[in-house]
């Protein structure tokens, strides 16, 4: 068989097979594409920034409450 004696043909057919298999993926599902493209940073509005900070402060404050509860229970 020609394909078994000609390494170039082997290479071509395996490449074609590979391309056929990988065509089941959407272009941006390929790892190479994911590495190449990253979403650009978005600009936060004032409201968004304020909400992010508010919830961050809420979390830190509430963690303090949890620590207080543990301290209280241990005591």
């Amino acid at each position: 068989m020609e394909s078994s004696t000609n390494p170039r043909n082997d290479h071509d057919s395996s490449n074609a097979g590979l391309a056929n298999i990988v065509s089941s993926l959407e272009p941006d599902q390929l790892i190479a594409a994911k590495k190449r493209y990253h979403w650009p940073r978005r600009k936060l509005t004032r409201l968004e920034t304020a909400l992010l900070w508010a919830l961050r402060i809420y979390l830190i404050f509430m963690l303090g409450v949890v620590l207080y509860q543990i301290w209280h229970a241990v005591r």
Partner: peptide
């Protein structure tokens, strides 16, 4: 993408494609 020679197809791509 797939047809281009400069795109590296990884093991992960092939498994997912299957």
């Amino acid at each position: 993408s797939t047809a281009s020679a400069d795109v590296v197809i990884t093991h992960e791509d092939i498994d997912r494609a299957h």
